[in-house]
Every structure is written in structure tokens, then in C-alpha cells.
Design a protein around this nucleic acid. Structure first.
Length: 559
RNA sequence: GGGCCUGUAGCCUAGCCUGGAAGGGCGUCUGGCUUCUAACCAGAAGAUCCAGGGUUCGAAUCCCUGCAGGCCCGCCA
């Protein structure tokens, strides 16, 4: 909450409570976030002791406090006494607070945070299911950085193991030429190799030989898989760039082997009290750790002594904490157990442990997405469709063509990101292309449009934003808008604490809605109250712009 | 067999941690552009908050028991 408003409300609550206590009312619970007004007194608990109905008590209370100077009005509804504070007296200082560039951020100590997101195996173009990952990760990074932290993002490139070896084999043996985007092209080679692996024992042996070379640290094999992965990644990065969600760094798993970091981890894990050995393979015994499932053995080496996927992930996280205070991972729900095992291993090694944000997979209307069944929706295709749709809607606009093209992209990509971000991550959702392509209502264009309206007013106003001089008498819709604006820091704080981005679209939508109502009720230019109103427009535009930028959505001046 | 996540109008969803008046949006119906941008606004209809029990003055929210859907339980990644 805005500090000024928080204080005004606290003062009013105290004053009212003291007054009621003097009159012999018992202490009653307060709702600080009521459906109407600024706070509400809940009268139900007093019904028994006072032997009156909650409604009766509420009426008496509202009469008692009617004269209180801090109370603008008190309305009783069904046992709730809803109280408005006097916004006229604080409005100007609230506006000053909102105009401050630090509004919404914090003065807590800035932490160095690494957000690992996407990290999809580089074996083919992104599916819609995976698209949730970069969008959530990227927006979380924007949120934490807006709040005042020092945030980097990283993509962990899985370029060792069977899939990576298969890809490398596919690219060197059946690289297909064509005009398609490189990842869409290379995935054909990968599929071919993958099929051969299953049916041709000769190919299978070659790929498995490669795998062993990789894991044992053979330099040329490591180079081969790394370069193959990079090739595929070139196309995937283009998609991420289009999505405005590209990671800052790319960390290759192969480097963990090449630099011997994995070996060090294996050596240290063997010293753990939980460590056991079975036919030359080492594992941590998790019987005491209450880990779900049948298998309580967490293997970190094979019989041949070489590392496994999680072993390398442990090494990776130890590296992370050398440079960062916190590590946050954006992971699909299939990684939950995996992530828990990682935590246990890191605890054994006295390391810090990462925080995780899990998201559920995206389904398609007829069922789940499946590569095998050919039920796949590519991110690239969705982005193309949604940008095209935005473009169609702009066709009658008077803007020039290059500007239209840019706008269509901003609107389309914005709508896609918003559509995914507005749902909490753990909730599974069915990707409905029609719903995503609907650019009305609770969507990015709605807020972008409000922002453009605010921009239009400021443009037409033409002068710089005036300092506030006189006391303002506010209308209902002005108070409603101002009240929403004051809640911004609270929304940010809550989202940062919970690592949940979905609160932001939610808030941005109500802010836009409040702004549109204000737009209808309160002309700004040539109004008696234009001095205050232009300030309100300025602040609304500012928060809309900042909120949208956290979502990775552009806020154009015209649309 | 076990563990975790989810269940709110025809559809999508917020609220659940920290108990107090069920919020939005889509779709449907009605009305509003000679006035700062109608991708907007106003109004109407639409909810056994998965089911059953418990705690409480009060439960979508907390506890217990079920049910349904998703995910996981490999010396794969």
C-alpha cells in the first residue's frame, strides 16, 4: 500500500476503535480490504454479547462515528459497517507519492539472484507446453528486478546424454537442407536418428559409444555434442527473442564434465553418511528422508562410475551459488521429485538450495500434447497466428505500414504472454487458441489500450504536468482509480514474496478498468479540475507502463 | 502401492497461505460513438465454490474421509 494511505487508514481505524470502545462496544475485527470503501468493521462477533443483530450493531456504529473527522462516510450493509476515509485531504500528497520513481520498488537489501528458465532440451522447436516456462521465468526476472534485486537469467543447455548424442549423430549423418527455420529443419535429422536408434542396432551402438565418450570427458565428443546443441539452439533462440524472453546466459552441461566439476561432486557425495554402493554404482540412501515412491535409492553414479543427469545438476547448482545469493528455477511439474532429490544432495554437501516455481503442463482441447501422436502445437505457429490476427485488426488504422507491423507484433506477443501469465503456474490449463486469440476483456490489448488513451490525453494536454496547489474534491470514479493505484506496492510485494507473477495481470486489468471508467466520467482537458486530473492520468499511465513491462508487454503511445 | 499438484456459472479464471459480503473475463441478451482513441462503457441473465463430515458466532478458505483430472516414483534426460 501507499504509505500515506496506509497511515490515513490506520489513523482512522484507531480513532474509530477508541471511540467505539468508549461507548462500550466490544473489540471488533476489521476487514482492511473490503468490497466497498477503505475498511469495514465486522459486527457479527458482537451479536451474542450485545444481544442485538449484527445489522442493528452496524447501524449504531455508523451513527456513532458519523461525526469523526477522519471518516467521510459509513454505510452499513448486512452486518458490515463500510467506512470511507476522506480522500480529498490526502489526494494531493498521494499523487506526489505515486509520482516518485521509486514507487513500487523497495529499500530492502538488493540480492543477487539467478533465475534459470526454459532449459528445454535442444532437440527441436518449442511446443506451447514449454512456452509457459520462458514466459513465467522472464516475467519473474523482470518483477524481481523492478522490486530492486539484481537479477540474471540463464538457460541450462542439456547437451550430454542419449538425446544429445542422438542429435549430434543425426546432424552429422542426415542433415537436411531447406528454407525452414533451422530448428524446424534439424528436428527432422533428430527424428531420423531417433528412429534409427530404435530399429538399427548398428546406429544404436554408435550413439551409445558416443554417449560413453561424452560422459568420460572425451574432448572431441564433448565438442561435437555442444556444437550440435548450439546449432539447434540458434533456431530456438530466435523464437525466444520473438517472445521477448531470451535468457542472458547459456550454460552448457557438457562444460561441467569438461572442467571436472562433476567428478569433484561425485567425490564429495561419496563422503556422505547416506552414501551406499551397489555393484560399483553409488547412491544416497533416502529411507529416512520420507521421499515418495518405491525407490528409496538415489543413484549418482552408474556401475562404470560415470555421472548421471542429476549428478551434473548438483554440480551446476554449486556453481550457481558461487556467484549468486539466490537461485530460482522455473520447472515443469514433472521435475518435482527430481528437484527434491537435488535439494537433499545439496544439503548433504552443505550448499544453499534453490527455490523452485513449478508449472503444470499445457493440454490441448482434445487431450494432452504428444509428439508421437502428432498432437503438437508449436510456439512459432501460435506467435505467427496471433500476430497476424492483430495485424488484421489494425488494417483499418490510419497509422503507416511499418508502424502497423511493429504494433501488430507488440499486441500479438503481448496478448500471448498475458494469456499465459494470468493463470497461476500450478494450475493446469488447456491451451485454447480461440481464447488466446481473443484480444478483448482480460487481455494485454485491453490494458495497452487504456495506456494509449492516457497517452492521448497527455499528448493533447500538451503542457508539462503541473504541481498540485489547491485542495481537490474528488468524484467516486476518481477515488476508485486512486485507491487502486495506491495498492500497487502491495501487489508487487506479494508477488515477489510468493514468486507468483499472476497477480500482476490481475491488478493491471482492474487498474485499466478503473481508468476506463474515469475516462468516461471525468473529462480532463478544459475541466475545472484539470490540474488534479492530468496528474491522475500521468500516474495511471506510469503504473500501467511499469506493470506491462513486468509482463514483458510493450506499452505503445497510440494504437 | 506411495507421494505431490489441481477441482469455483455453458467456458476460462481471482480469492485459499493469514476464516468474515463469492470478484473478473469469454460467450448470450439490451443500450451507448457530432464531446480527451468504442480493442471502450453501462445494464441483464448465469454459482449445490467436486462430495461428505468436523472445528467456529461465521468455512470456497482450516482439519479429516472420499471422488475426479494432471504429474512423478529408471544405474534415462
Amino acid at each position: 500500500m501507499s504509505q500515506i494511505v496506509t497511515k490515513a487508514i490506520e489513523d482512522a481505524i484507531k480513532s474509530v476503535s477508541d471511540e467505539l470502545e468508549k461507548k462500550g462496544f466490544p473489540k471488533l475485527p476489521i476487514d482492511k480490504n473490503p468490497p466497498m470503501g477503505d475498511f469495514a468493521i465486522i459486527c457479527f462477533p458482537a451479536a451474542k454479547t450485545l444481544k442485538k443483530s449484527p445489522d442493528q450493531i452496524s447501524k449504531e456504529i455508523s451513527l456513532e462515528i458519523q461525526k469523526n473527522k477522519l471518516v467521510k462516510r459509513a454505510i452499513n450493509v448486512k452486518g458490515y459497517c463500510n467506512i470511507d476515509i476522506n480522500w480529498n485531504t490526502i489526494a494531493n500528497s498521494v499523487i506526489e507519492e505515486l509520482k516518485n520513481s521509486k514507487y513500487g520498488s523497495t529499500n530492502v537489501k538488493s540480492e543477487k539472484i539467478l533465475i534459470e528458465h526454459t532449459s528445454a532440451n535442444p532437440t527441436g522447436p518449442f511446443h506451447m507446453g514449454r512456452a509457459r516456462n520462458p514466459i513465467i521465468g522472464d516475467s519473474l526476472a523482470r518483477l524481481l528486478s523492478y522490486y530492486g534485486h539484481n537479477v540474471d537469467t540463464e538457460y541450462y543447455v542439456n547437451d550430454t546424454g542419449r538425446q544429445a548424442a542422438t542429435l549430434a549423430y543425426g546432424i552429422s549423418n542426415y542433415e537436411s537442407k531447406g528454407k525452414n527455420k533451422i530448428d524446424h529443419r534439424l528436428v527432422e535429422s533428430y527424428r531420423k536418428a531417433s528412429n534409427e536408434l530404435k530399429t538399427n542396432p548398428d546406429v544404436k551402438e554408435k550413439i551409445y559409444r558416443k554417449m560413453e565418450l561424452i560422459e568420460s570427458g572425451d574432448k572431441s565428443a564433448l565438442n561435437d555434442v555442444k556444437n550440435s546443441a548450439k546449432k539447434m539452439l540458434r533456431g530456438m533462440k530466435e523464437s525466444l527473442k520473438e517472445l521477448e524472453a531470451e535468457a542472458l546466459n547459456y550454460y552448457h552441461e557438457s562444460d561441467l564434465i569438461a572442467t571436472g566439476k562433476v567428478e569433484t561432486v561425485i567425490k564429495k557425495l561419496k563422503e556422505s553418511e547416506l552414501c551406499q554402493e551397489e555393484k560399483g554404482a553409488y547412491y544416497l540412501d533416502l529411507k529416512e528422508k520420507k521421499i515418495a515412491g518405491r525407490n528409496q535409492k538415489f543413484f549418482f553414479t552408474r556401475e562404470n562410475g560415470l555421472s548421471l543427469y542429476t549428478t551434473r545438476d548438483i554440480a551446476y547448482h554449486i556453481e550457481k551459488f558461487k556467484n549468486y545469493d539466490r537461485a530460482i528455477n522455473i520447472l515443469g511439474e514433472d521435475h518435482r521429485l527430481q528437484s527434491r532429490l537435488l535439494e537433499i544432495a545439496l544439503e548433504e554437501l552443505n550448499s544453499k538450495i534453490p527455490e523452485a516455481v513449478f508449472y503444470s503442463f499445457v493440454n490441448l482441447p482434445g487431450g494432452k500434447m504428444s509428439t508421437r501422436a502428432g498432437r503438437v502445437v508449436y510456439l512459432d505457429d501460435v506467435m505467427k497466428d496471433i500476430v497476424e490476427l492483430a495485424s488484421k485488426k489494425l488494417s483499418s488504422s490510419e497509422l503507416d505500414e511499418s508502424r502497423k507491423k511493429e504494433l501488430a507484433k507488440q499486441i500479438g506477443i503481448g496478448a500471448l504472454r498475458y494469456n499465459i501469465l494470468k493463470v497461476q503456474a500450478e494450475k493446469g490449463f488447456t491451451f485454447n487458441i480461440d481464447e488466446a486469440l481473443n484480444l478483448q476483456g482480460d487481455s494485454a490489448p485491453f490494458s495497452m489500450y487504456s495506456h494509449a488513451r492516457a497517452s492521448a490525453i497527455l499528448r493533447n494536454y500538451g503542457e508539462s504536468i503541473p504541481e498540485l496547489t489547491s485542495i481537490t474534491f474528488l468524484q467516486e470514479t476518481e477515488i476508485k482509480l486512486l485507491r487502486t493505484l495506491t495498492k500497487w506496492p502491495y501487489i508487487i510485494e506479494k508477488s515477489v514474496t510468493d514468486l507468483s507473477v499472476h497477480n500482476i495481470p490481475n491488478y493491471i486489468h482492474s487498474l485499466s478498468s478503473d481508468f476506463n471508467q474515469f475516462y468516461r466520467d471525468c473529462p480532463v482537458i478544459n475541466s475545472d479540475n484539470s490540474e488534479f486530473r492530468i496528474n491522475l492520468v500521468f500516474c495511471s499511465k506510469k503504473i500501467l507502463c511499469e506493470g506491462l513491462s513486468i509482463l514483458g508487454v510493450k506499452a505503445p503511445e497510440r494504437m
